[in-house]
Design a protein around this nucleic acid. Structure first.
Length: 477
RNA sequence: GUCCCGUUCGUCUAGUGGACUAGGACUCAGGAUUUUCAUUCCUGCAACAGGGGUUCGAUUCCCCUACGGGAUACCA
């Protein structure tokens, strides 16, 4: 089992699942499934200041809703737990000590005020703002003395001052960075918690992670991480940095310019199938021109090698189209289930399941998100309100003759079939001399409240004889 | 500012030196189907950031410039 591929999705619980994170989670998931490896969820909650109540539950809930199942994680356990970093502080402390022993890290007693002053001086001199390493020079005795006095401290990485580090990223290929541009990163904060950089390296190693697949914003941190792997004598995982998701103005996708929370998309009536498919295409493309994929198909097709390098704009127009596509193509029973909350919220009585399913079938190809569905279905549930323009058509002499004719002829019918309707349509033309728009528009207006809309037999079928009669007779007032 | 990464139609992208009059998808425009609308189908508009090389030949390789983004925290 040494060769088993293990990847992880490691979000910090700051409130909700971001669509960019969804894409990262998806790629991790897909790669794991593709190579029959393991997909792990780990919560990076080392920042106590950013703790958000309920964020983890929310994150897990959203992941469940879109169907991204993980093999190990905080709520389901696994052999490499705990999966909350906040529950692993002792582990990090131990390894930090090891780093000190190996002279790969050092105690730093600078206060945030000290740092602030240092930074201002550097800016004034036009220098780069980096920790100047003053605490590196502290002797063992001085350090011990400070420690004994109970002075607050952090532990910093003792990053090399010269030379260059070259590493290979699956997406970026060769990347090289000069050590002198890398800061002496804080590893253990003064509250005793580790920073992301330390925790992530230790956990990835302990959890036997083989591939780190994450956003591009981490690319410049890789040297810090590689430094740690090297100091510990560990083999680093393969790196794979994903191109960023962008706002329409090409800046990093943010809340300010629209929805970014997956739960909000779900609430608005985007289907998991569409969300996943759409997001999969942001940065990845199969060899073929195929763009419509189910999760299962993606699991077979996906490959890290075909991830591209440049950031992608999150184009809501295409998402809308894709969502509409799934609304039309997926099994109608499934769409009916997904649509149910929207009908309930609109106050529509959907207890008549047969009618409800018929309506779903009618309206689902007229919308791109479920949030629009009740508006389209409303004429089937509510009393129709007419505009002045509508009333003109309704009160038109021909229209009135038409309504009387249909009322009379439908009353005598046992059941309304499509044949019946077509026959009456023909009779309307033959006997009343009404045809074309003069025929269809008034009828659709009477029964559906709009001159445009579904085919007449469909409307009759959904409404049923009694309701059709009721609506027709209302026209004669 | 510094470091790193990137740059093909408006957007998502195909393309790894000749098969490119640069292909697909979304959007948009036109048409067909339909009593209407929606769906569906067809057609069209639209791009290799710029400049130097390398080469018989560059979208493809190298360099420079421009532009964009990311990172520069005791946040992740």
């Amino acid at each position: 089992m040494e060769s088993e591929i293990r990847v992880r999705f490691a979000p910090s619980p700051t409130g909700y699942l971001h669509v960019g994170s969804l894409r990262t989670a998806l790629y991790n998931y897909l790669y794991a499934r593709k190579v029959k490896g393991k997909f792990i969820l780990r919560i990076e909650d080392t920042d106590q200041a950013r703790y958000v109540e309920g964020a983890v539950e929310n994150l897990i809930e959203t992941l469940n809703q879109v169907g991204l199942e993980y093999d190990e994680g905080p709520d389901i356990g696994g052999n490499y737990g705990p999966y909350f970093q906040s529950q692993r502080t002792e582990i990090y402390g131990k390894y930090a000590d090891e780093l000190i022993e190996k002279d790969a890290a050092y105690f730093c007693f600078c206060t945030s005020e000290d740092l602030e002053i240092m930074r201002e001086e550097q800016i004034a001199k036009g220098e780069d703002t980096r920790y100047d390493g003053r605490c590196r020079k502290l002797s063992k005795e001085q350090v011990q003395e400070n420690l004994d006095q109970g002075k607050p401290y952090v532990i910093r990485a003792k990053i090399p001052k010269e030379g260059e580090i070259v590493f290979f990223d699956i997406v970026r290929e060769k990347v090289s960075i000069m050590w002198e541009t890398v800061d002496d990163q804080v590893l253990i904060k003064s509250d005793g918690f580790p920073t992301y950089h330390l925790a992530n390296v230790i956990d990835d190693h302990l959890m036997k992670i083989t591939h780190v697949i994450r956003g591009e914003e981490w690319l410049s941190s890789v040297p810090k991480h590689l430094f740690l792997y090297n100091a510990f004598g560990w083999k680093p995982p393969k790196m794979c940095h994903l191109p960023l998701l962008l706002n329409p103005d090409k800046s990093k996708l943010s809340k300010r310019q629209g929805d970014v929370a997956v739960e909000d998309f779900l609430k608005k009536g985007y289907l998991p199938e569409a969300l996943l498919n759409f997001v999969a295409l942001l940065g990845w493309h199969s060899k073929s021109d195929k763009e419509l994929y189910s999760l299962e198909e993606l699991e077979k097709e996906f490959s890290l090698k075909r991830i591209n390098k440049s950031g992608s704009v999150f184009d809501i127009e295409k998402l809308n189209w894709m969502n509409g596509h799934y609304l039309r193509e997926l099994e109608s029973g499934y769409v009916a289930i997904k649509a149910r909350p929207f009908f309930i919220k609109a106050g529509f009585d959907i207890n008549d399941n047969e009618k409800y399913l018929k309506i779903i079938e009618v309206v689902r190809n007229r919308i791109s998100t479920l949030s629009e569905i009740t508006k389209v279905a409303a004429p089937f549930y509510e009393t129709i309100k007419y505009s002045e323009e509508d009333k003109q058509i309704i009160n038109n002499e021909n229209s009135q003759r038409l309504f009387s004719f249909w009322l009379k002829n439908i009353q005598v019918l046992d059941i309304i079939t499509e044949e019946n309707i077509n026959r009456l349509l023909k009779q309307s033309t033959d006997e009343l001399g009404i045809k074309g728009k003069d025929l269809y528009f008034p009828l659709r207006l009477a029964l559906f409240g709009s001159v445009h809309g579904p085919e007449l037999p469909v409307i009759f079928d959904v409404l049923g004889k009694e309701e059709v009669l009721g609506r027709l007779s209302k026209m004669l007032d």
